[in-house]
Amino acid sequence: MDASTSLTGGFADPVFAAQSVFRAVMDCMARPGTIGTIGSEATAPGALGAAQAAIALTLCDADTPVWFADTLASPALSAWLAFHTGASVAPDPTTAKFAFLGLGGVPHPDFPIGTQDYPDRSATVVIEVSGFEAGEPFTLSGPGIAGTQPLSVAGLFPDFRTFWQANRAEFPRGIDLILTAGTRLVALPRSVRILD
């Protein structure tokens, strides 16, 4: 384990950084399809993106088991997460509160989607994509959107539409998605519909 990378890469000013990152995530969650930017730098060992690292530092702690996709997982990353947040790696996908996936990553079918009584007990899944300029175009609608909202995503896993339709069909259960590209992010809460 590389201790040096695990002890560094946290927020320079944890209190205000967490506040600003949270506000960026909240704004995106409240306005699905709009692109937000993470203003505070965080660096994790391996391939975890800058926004992904910042989200982990902002929202994860001892109460939130975290799942890393195989392409991201490493002892150094687990140590980094534990040192900076107190969170532990989820032993299996069913216990994940947060999940971080690399480029092209597909959400595990066993991520919790909550129950009909407690739909909030579901995973928030953070997937790295290559960008929001080009790529597959989507038209979104739903709470948080006046009319419709266009979104382009490059580097998302194939058959995303089918996956999302299935997720939307479970409403109010379902996972909530955050797509990240470097320091930028877009949120797709479960309430969003993809038109066309």
Binding site: A18, M29, A30, L59, P189
Partner: peptide, 18 residues
Amino acid sequence: EETKRMIRRAILKAIAIP
């Protein structure tokens, strides 16, 4: 900060399930 994180997580879920 621990309390804020707990509340922030709740807020995000609340927004996702209006």
